[in-house]
Nucleic acid binder design. Structure first.
Length: 732
RNA sequence: GGGAGCGUGCCGGAAUUGGUAGACGGACUCGACUCAAAAUCGAGCGCCUUCGGGCAUGUGGGUUCGAGUCCCACCGCUCCCA
């Protein structure tokens, strides 16, 4: 528990963790502009795991690169040094006070021309001189009303004020002024920075504004001094004006100056993280109560194990006014201290919602256990999760917290793995069609748009902007899957969603495409219905592997398969191959559905020319391949084809209990293939050639072709590239 | 400003990882069926063309027999961090 400046959501009347405040300084839940407040709150020490959380990211090979990058940025490890600047009195003598700054550029210390404190820094009040007090107070007041974003954004002016005191640069003994400025934050590092205008852009802007000296101490290697017109020189280089470090490359100077500081007692190497401890206190009713009791004599006492869990009261009144309802329910919070028995007070803060979601997946391994959340045996046998699916919005909230919990539980010996999720799929969002009147700025509901091909404002008649955007009530662009399910059924809805876009991309919801998917399913029904009319049936295992194998054996002795049969078998086994690959590994459901469409198209043209066993193989395969995508229709078709008789009580004969079709690679082989003839890399035509022709044969065929005669004009090519089964490239 | 990713027909999107760009679907056009419409079926559908072909995957270069795919620079968009 610690006192800290926290993010306060004025709408929800609760505090928030840093991860829950977006880049505009707004609450992830309410959207309110977050305020800063000083409160005593509970934290989890996630910073103790900062190194591990960062260093283990490369292990997560099944995660999207960008999620790993986002986490790395969020943790934000920077290596540098803490350097101490003694505060001097009016006569220039060192006092007992000193300012410690954090910097990633100890190599630039000889260029420090001032030191800046955050306005909230505890030493500000004590060090401010009398003549500066009024300015300092006014400035601090101004800054307290600014958001973190306003204070630190690059394009915002940097403001500050000198507080009157001076410090001594420990590297060269120079006396430099002490300032406070809005761009220095109390929470980051030590809340103090050294100002090196020549080599830091913010310091440069600040120094120019307040006419502070700019002294260059690093120059580009092998070049003259850098002139300060554009701004600070922030790249690596060679040191100058740095005493005994002159001539040293800046990369080496970082270590050398840090070592000197350590030896002489004015600094030390330091690794700094952007990650802060996780603030978990919430002033809400809904949440798991933080299980501690506050006793005047014993202090903070954990609720004894036998009294856990602490349950929320049911007789609570929701006033809707500020603060937690629990704090207003004395009958709930008044308890006796478990240590001394004196009257004490139960903690009324509850835990952040992300606490529970950080380990819920572990509970799935042992859901009926009433004594423990899970046993080690159960959790180790089921976890880590093979494939996790979630939105990109969890990239640094839930997915970082869950990793942290897993590592803590591992260190407590409660489980044996380092990372909770092996593969991560960040699925896209459904976006609805959105109409906006750009003159009035108003959004128009699709139902009010009379003609979607020429959308106009029903009131003003203005032409409307049309685009797809994340669904939002205020934009009237929500889509209700229930409407589609009612009209077309769940199978159509599923097929549409899977086909329209790859899973990690946003999906533009378009009613016309839903209609198209519905047509495809109807086409499948007619295809199977037609087959049934012609007497085809899957009863007694017709069309399964063994039967087909026998048919093929017989066919070979009696002249082989006809053209329809060959084409159909190739289509069937291509579909098996492609759909199996699409479902395995990277989930490419959109191309899997398109393969189903191709198979259905091939069946429409070839089914009637095939013998019954091969037609049945195609029908059986189609329906089984369809089953994961359109489970209801697939079962109906299976029933219709008498794969399962209606009276058959055995559920195991359902299409969903059938073995996945096996690929017969021989079916993919063609007798002849189309050989593309290129001349100088350009396609000039193609030849029908035997599939098993060797390189020499292909070259000869290509050279003898009309295409070669026409384009080579009788000359022999200087080079011939042959890619068997694909192409021949003739280079004149 | 730093980082990550992306850029392909009218649209959503494919492309065995360097080998016929535009699969599959939507939209659109034409035809068949129909009194008519819907549905269904068939055909067409990147651009230009003197009908030989030429040009096309954001732009400009490069590597290669061959580049949507690899390399360099630039432009634009999205997200994350400032």
């Amino acid at each position: 528990m610690a006192s800290a400046t926290v993010n306060w959501d004025p709408i929800d009347q609760t505090v928030l963790a840093n991860e829950q405040v977006d880049s505009e300084g707004r609450s992830w839940r309410s959207g309110a502009l977050v305020e800063k407040r000083k409160l005593r709150q509970w934290f989890l020490k996630i910073t103790a795991y900062a190194d591990q959380l960062l260093d283990d990211l490369p292990k997560l090979e099944g995660w999207p690169e960008r999620v790993r990058t986002m986490q790395a940025n969020w943790i934000g490890r920077s290596t540098g040094a803490e350097l101490t600047f003694p505060v001097v009195d009016a006569d220039g003598h060192d006092t007992a006070e000193s300012i410690t700054v954090f910097t990633t550029r100890p190599d630039t210390i000889f260029g420090a021309s001032y030191v800046v404190l955050a306005p909230e820094h505890p030493l500000v009040a004590r060090l401010t001189t009398a003549d500066q007090a009024i300015h300092v107070e006014a400035f601090c007041d101004l800054v307290s009303r600014q958001s973190e974003l306003e204070r630190t954004a690059d394009d915002k002016p940097k403001r500050g004020v000198a507080i009157g005191a001076q410090v001594r640069n420990p590297a060269n003994g120079e006396l430099i002024p002490l300032w406070i400025a809005d761009y220095v934050l109390a929470e980051y590092g030590t809340g103090a920075v050294m100002g090196v205008p020549a080599h830091d852009q913010r310091d440069f802007v600040f120094a120019r504004q307040y006419e502070l000296p700019v002294r260059q101490v690093i120059i580009p290697e092998g070049s003259d001094e850098h002139a300060y017109e554009g701004g600070a020189w922030t790249e690596a280089g060679v040191l100058i004006h740095s005493g005994r470090f002159d001539g040293l490359p800046s990369v080496e100077a970082k270590t050398a100056i840090t070592a000197a500081a350590e030896a002489e007692g004015w600094g030390q190497g330091k690794v700094q993280f952007r990650l802060r401890d996780w603030l978990i206190s919430r002033q809400r009713y809904w949440g798991c109560p933080i299980p501690v009791i506050h006793c005047d004599s014993c202090g903070v006492v954990p609720v004894p194990v036998e009294q856990l869990p602490v349950e929320l009261p049911r007789d609570v009144a929701f006033s809707g006014k500020g603060g937690s309802p629990l704090a207003q329910l004395e009958s709930w919070w008044r308890v006796d201290c478990p240590c001394c028995g004196q009257p004490a007070r139960r903690e009324t803060d509850t835990m952040d919602t992300f606490m529970c979601s950080s380990w819920y997946f572990l509970r799935y391994s042992d859901p009926h256990n009433t004594a423990l959340p899970f046993t080690r045996e159960a959790v180790d046998s089921w976890l880590p999760v093979d494939q996790y699916v979630g939105g990109i919005e969890h990239a640094i909230l839930h997915l970082l917290y869950s990793r942290f919990f897993t590592k803590v539980l591992r260190d407590r010996g409660l489980l044996s793995f380092d990372e909770p999720f092996q593969h991560l799929l960040t699925q896209g969002m459904v976006q609805g069609i959105t109409y906006k009147n750009s003159h009035t700025g108003k959004y128009i509901a699709p139902a009010d748009v009379a003609d979607p091909s020429d959308p106009r404002d029903p009131v003003t008649g203005d032409p409307l902007e049309t685009f797809y955007e994340k669904m939002s009530k205020s934009k009237y662009n929500g889509v209700d899957p229930a409407v589609v399910i009612d009209k077309y059924g769940a199978d159509t809805a599923r097929m549409f969603i899977l086909f329209k876009a790859p899973p990690e991309k946003d999906l533009e919801w378009d009613d016309a495409d839903v209609e198209g998917q519905f047509r495809f399913l109807q086409r499948l029904w007619r295809l199977v219905d037609g087959a049934c009319q012609r007497g085809l049936s899957l009863a007694d295992g017709a069309g399964d592997q063994a039967v087909v194998k026998q048919t093929l054996a017989t066919a070979i002795s009696s002249g082989g398969l006809n053209a329809d049969e060959q084409d159909l078998r190739r289509a069937v086994h291509t579909a098996i191959k492609e759909i199996s690959a699409d479902l395995d590994g990277d989930y490419q459901f959109n191309t899997a559905v398109s393969e189903l469409m191709k198979l259905s198209n091939a069946m429409a043209s070839h089914l009637e020319g095939c013998s019954a066993p091969l037609a049945c193989e195609a029908l059986r395969t189609l329906v089984i391949l369809l089953a994961p995508f359109a489970p209801h229709l697939a079962e109906e078709l299976w029933l219709k084809l008498a794969g399962r008789s209606e009276q058959d009580p055995l559920v195991c004969r359902s299409v969903h209990c059938q073995a996945w079709p096996l690929l017969d690679a021989a079916a993919l082989v063609r007798d002849t293939v189309e050989l593309v003839i290129q001349v100088k890399g350009k396609v000039r035509g193609s030849l029908e050639v035997p599939a098993d022709a060797d390189k020499t044969t292909l070259e000869q065929l290509a050279l003898a072709s009309d295409i070669a005669a026409k384009w080579l004009e009788g000359k022999a090519p200087s080079r011939v590239i042959v890619v068997p089964g694909k192409l021949v490239n003739l280079v004149p």
